[in-house]
Design a protein around this nucleic acid. Structure first.
Lengths: 362, 362
DNA sequence: CTCTCACCCTAAACCGGTTTAGATGCGGCG
DNA sequence: CGCCGCATCTAAACCGGTTTAGGGTGAGAG
């Protein structure tokens, strides 16, 4: 019941000093093979795990890593990224005897405060930095704080922090090409919060793709929330000469956009093609199933955790580039209806078109 | 940069012994008002926070609380509960100088292992126990482990643990009544994973409501994932004499169910009424907007955290009952089409029907 | 004028590990 | 045979707090 075995118990039982137990446990030199084996066996028999707090007192480590999630209450419920990211990261940390400390805050000020608190109290040995902003001063602040950190995104200024990144350009390029191939010329983009770097990068890439094809880009600014996605969609469809296809900065906005279109009596995808990004599972289970760019939040988590652990243990770790984003073609994109032509609604009980049979561009 | 102020620095600067600083900080008796004030002022000037690891070594506390989330990779991305729950809990913990340690596991065995690890390593002072199962042996295991814990749900066997619960009966009753008032007599329920207690409770209540009205209940078993929600919907609609309304155990399944119905060319809600549960934000932004039962994951988090903190500090804490679940009427439920009558699809660009104007039953 | 007692404070032990200085034993070399 | 060096191990200091035994001091009681 009460966990009271300490290093002294192990030392006594193995007939050695506690110092030697410590050396054996951390396989340091100066321990005979025989003694080491005996010590480890006894430790195992007693089910002894060193207390990280006591350990940390000497080593000045917390054996914990911090993730601070900054989300407004409105967006967090709907965000498909974090739960899976944490699952991926935590699995790696557990292998290394580390633990994940989580904080959820509403804005950047609270976030910086949380970094400082966790750091000043020596609660964590390092941080995951997510949701990179344009000119993100969190990076500098973390540089001052002096804790190891890995950054998700492509910061301008890394203070030597390892960077985990993923190229969305190819995916966006594929997506625009896909729509153009279908015959679309008036393609709109509903952005995420453009203060956030990945929203900005996606927008820039969209503009470049349009430019390369001589198309006039149509842009509506939103913030990744379904609500703003719906508002932006209304605005686009109310404009004179509305787009025939809309690309959204994430899937929840795209789903909200589809609802707006449906509500206006539009038939999807005949009257309007819709695509998302950061493909979440749910996109495969809406009607019509959502064309999107894939994402692998658990993969981000694993890569980030492995990098951070290595950074802390070895003092350095290389950057990681995740596999490029890829287009997932589903049913929400199709050739635009020609004036006068009226597509019939899709029917039939065929689940084959669902997520199980997504087609990825290769 | 390097955080090196310790209790000794404070003691020296305040001209007292470090023992006295400790007493002052934890307002224990035996410190003169004058000394106490001086010590606290100096501590503040120096920006000193006691190191929780050093503290915990004496007090045998971790100043951290554990949340272990058990979700299959398929469900986790889509789960609207946890992110908001954690946000609510963590906000409370921060006020109390505690921290949230998170673990994500795939099954019950891994979950028990995680409890044991976090407990044996003295990483946390207590646990949040969520996703209660029928005859949940985690409760007994936690009783053996002997750490404080709060339970979300209504366990049979609490080992004296405080319980946070919420009554869904009233909400389900309202929901069934709502559908019956609209004229439905063939109402189906797509369950969540019935090994989980809340799925079972909802099912039981649904059956009771049908029974009370002399209606033959229709039930399809699923597991809270959109995929299973879609499969169950197919099965129901393929049955002879299909239901005119379907109530799903959560919103993601309901959304998947709507997609299946749309794909079959049904017009919603005229040809089929659909309702969810555990209302998430996204339900207000699909087409048609989803009638559901409300939920307040952040409220669960706050209540659970306050209770757990109190349990640890005072040795006991009362159970908490959250406000009853309430029906959120939106556009996905309506009177069933009479044979021969054909509803026209809804049209027009009226966003007024969106989440901003949900009507709650009072 | 002592004795007692409350009050305020200090010194030191303690929590459970890590780390280092130094003790011990042993074989090899001069 | 004496000395050295290496491998192995022990003892003790240390990390940064908490807790407790006990030392001074001043006021009130006898």
């Amino acid at each position: 019941m009460d966990q009271k075995i300490t290093i002294d118990d192990v030392a006594k039982r193995a007939g050695v000093s506690k110092g030697l137990v410590s050396l054996a446990l951390n396989d340091r030199p100066g321990v005979s093979a025989e003694a080491k084996q005996r010590i480890l066996r006894v430790a195992d028999e007693l089910g002894w795990h060193p207390d990280p707090a006591a350990r940390g007192l000497s080593t000045r480590r917390a054996y914990a890593l911090g993730l601070i999630v900054r989300r407004s209450p409105h967006v967090i419920e709907v965000d498909p990224f974090f739960a899976a990211f944490m699952a991926g990261a935590e699995a790696v940390l557990a292998e290394h005897g580390q633990v994940l400390v989580l904080s959820v805050v509403a804005d950047v000020d609270a976030e910086l405060q949380a970094y400082r608190r966790l750091s000043a109290e020596r609660r964590v040995d390092g941080f995951f930095v997510t949701d990179l902003l344009e000119n993100d001063h969190r990076i500098d602040a973390l540089g001052d704080i002096g804790k190891p950190a890995v950054v998700l995104g492509r910061p301008d200024n890394t203070h030597g922090m390892p960077v985990i990144s993923r190229d969305y350009s190819a995916g966006i390029s594929q997506l625009v090409a896909h729509l153009v191939d279908l015959g679309h010329r008036r393609i709109a983009h509903v952005t995420g919060n453009v203060a956030m770097q990945h929203a900005r990068i996606r927008l820039d890439r969209f503009l470049a793709e349009c430019d390369a094809r001589g198309m006039e880009p149509i842009v509506a600014e939103a913030d990744f929330s379904p609500e703003q996605g719906a508002v932006a969609t209304q605005a686009l469809l109310d404009g004179r000469n509305p787009p025939t296809a809309i690309i959204y900065g994430n899937d929840p906005m795209a789903i909200a956009g589809m609802a707006v279109a449906h509500e206006r009596g539009l038939s999807l995808p005949a009257d309007l093609s819709i695509a998302g990004m950061d493909g979440s599972d749910i996109g495969g289970w809406v009607y019509p199933t959502l064309t999107t760019l894939d994402n692998d939040p658990a993969g981000w988590g694993r890569a980030a955790a492995e990098t951070l652990v290595r950074l802390i243990e070895d003092g350095a770790a290389p950057d990681v580039t995740l596999p490029d984003a890829e287009l997932i073609r589903r049913a929400s994109t199709a050739a635009p209806a020609q004036p006068g032509e009226r597509r019939t609604p899709r029917g039939g009980g065929d689940t084959q078109q669902h997520a199980t049979t997504d087609t990825k561009e290769t």
